[in-house]
């Protein structure tokens, strides 16, 4: 049976314009949706910028600068202790709400204020001071070792999320406490006797309820003994 020779398939020529349109289309697509992007390793920070390079946090330097540039000026214009103590004697919970600040969830409430008063007792690690203008209002002024976060959290000038982490934030506390011991407590320990008149500013934790002793214990960040 004779077989008809098959005709060779007819090759359709592509329109010439396709050869130009397709690459242009591809180029546009690649421009709009690039196959990869070059990003810095740490978003938001140029790694070649020395200012953006990670630097170990130095709590000593930070605290020294903070002490001079922020804490001391704030202490000079802090509110008076006297109205706080009046409210505290009336209702500790209401006084804390009105005058204090709380840190974190369920944390203690702190006050930061200034006052003047007369020393009524010199005890181990503290002075008892009767506050001017509020008869019977006695506070303790700490003169012994300073621990904890009362200065850091009580002054209201430092926020946990400004520090790189909790360890660094805690290091600030330790350093501020050291500065109190180095720069303020010597003034209060050197020859202060009963009857001496003081002006001071400091931070204190609000008591949940009042006991028989001083209304609260203040950690001084500024103190001066009047002649």
């Amino acid at each position: 049976m004779p077989v008809e020779p098959s005709l060779p398939a007819r090759r359709t020529a592509s329109p010439r314009w396709l050869a130009f349109v397709l690459p242009v289309l591809a180029a546009v697509l690649l421009l709009v949706f690039p196959p990869f992007r070059v990003l810095p390793l740490k978003p938001g920070a140029a790694i070649l910028d020395p200012a953006a390079a990670p630097v170990a946090f130095d709590a000593v330097t930070f605290s020294a600068v903070f002490w001079a540039a922020q804490l001391q000026p704030a202490a000079a214009v802090a509110p008076e202790w006297q109205p706080i103590l009046v409210d505290l004697r009336r209702d500790p919970v209401a006084a804390a709400k009105q005058h204090g600040r709380q840190v974190g969830l369920g944390g203690p409430v702190y006050f930061f204020a200034q006052a003047s008063g007369r020393v009524t007792a010199v005890e181990r690690g503290r002075l008892l001071v009767a506050i001017d203008g509020e008869e019977g209002a006695t506070v303790a002024l700490r003169t012994g070792p300073v621990f904890g976060n009362t200065v850091r959290d009580g002054c209201g000038l430092l926020e946990v999320n400004r520090a790189p982490g909790l360890q660094e934030f805690n290091a600030i506390s330790a350093e501020l406490n050291r500065l109190v011991e180095e720069r303020v407590l010597p003034v209060l320990k050197a020859g202060v006797v009963v009857g001496a008149h003081l002006t001071f500013a400091g931070c204190a934790e609000a008591p949940e309820k009042l006991g028989d002793g001083p209304l609260l214990t203040i950690i001084p960040v500024q103190a001066e003994v009047k002649p």
Binding site: G104, L105, P108, V160, N161
Partner: peptide
Amino acid sequence: FPQRVPVA
């Protein structure tokens, strides 16, 4: 949201 929230 705050990055760190200390709990007493």
